[in-house]
């Protein structure tokens, strides 16, 4: 398992280097996030055409789908970061994994809330046991478990490792859960109308969606880096470089 990794990998593992590197990245990502999100929102709300079946409620897609994608990839990132932390004993990876959990949970809530609201005009009910919504609910439960476990340990090192194990177990289970929920859904309500499975979306509909997805990712990167940076400072508070950072703040 422990084969030699490229130099940047070890550099990234140094807290000081991580802090300086993210200082340089943050303004760029913040600018990109604002630009993409504002463009995408205006494009999606004002210029994109309404769906011929669902009308204007279709515009919820520009938050619901990016939120769903981000919530899932955030879990994958958390589990992968946890695995890197476990295998290479890299503290920064644990810091990143820990910062992922609250963001991912809030984005999962966003996906659920917008999905439920979208359900009202589409299906006539605020909550429908749709396969995607149910899977997202289970994903939120997985996030809640990770957050609860992480806060239950007093020792940081144990909390890191325990959450990494749990998120890896969750990651392995996610495909099984998705498959089982989809199967359960077809069993109980055959041929429901799925909102997001569009046969062919014209470019003026999916281009703003793409912009929004990128914007969500940039936003996630900004919040993730800010949270991880504070955690790095917290963990390295005895070192000289952190003292310097504090004095210059």
């Amino acid at each position: 398992m422990k084969k030699k990794m490229p130099r940047w990998f070890y550099q990234l593992a140094s807290p000081k280097w991580f802090y300086e590197f993210t200082s340089a990245l943050l303004p760029w990502f913040s600018a990109a996030a604002i630009l993409l999100l504002v463009t995408g929102t205006i494009w999606g709300l004002v210029f994109a055409p309404a769906d011929y079946q669902q009308g204007n409620s279709f515009r919820i897609i520009y938050i619901h789908v990016p939120a769903s994608i981000l919530a899932q990839s955030c879990y994958v990132m958390m589990a992968v970061a946890g695995a890197i932390g476990l295998i290479w004993k890299m503290k920064i990876a644990h810091v990143v994994a820990g910062a992922c959990a609250p963001i991912g949970a809030s984005i999962a809530v966003m996906s659920l809330a917008t999905g439920a609201i979208w359900g009202k005009p589409t299906w006539g009910a605020w909550w429908v046991w749709d396969a995607r919504l149910t899977s997202m609910l289970v994903l939120l439960f997985l996030y809640i478990g990770v957050i609860a476990l992480n806060s239950a340990f007093e020792n940081k090192a144990s909390a890191d490792k325990a959450t990494a194990i749990l998120s890896l177990v969750g990651l392995v289970n996610i495909p099984i859960i998705k498959y089982s929920v989809e199967w359960w859904n077809t069993l109980h309500q055959p041929a429901t109308f799925t909102v997001t499975a569009k046969p062919a979306m014209p470019p003026e509909m999916w281009l703003p969606l793409l912009v929004m997805v990128l914007g969500f990712y940039c936003f996630f990167a900004v919040i993730l880096m800010s949270r991880a940076r504070v955690e790095v400072l917290q963990r390295e508070k005895r070192t000289d470089w952190v003292k310097k950072v504090i004095q210059n703040y």
Binding site: G145, A148, L149, F153, N173, I176, V181
Partner: peptide, 23 residues
């Protein structure tokens, strides 16, 4: 295994395990 060292493991373990039981 994850919660055995914790004093208040009881509710926590259900939070961790129940989602995995769904399939």
């Amino acid at each position: 295994g994850l919660t055995v060292g914790l004093r208040r493991g009881g509710v926590l373990i259900s939070l961790l395990v129940l989602p995995l039981y769904i399939p």
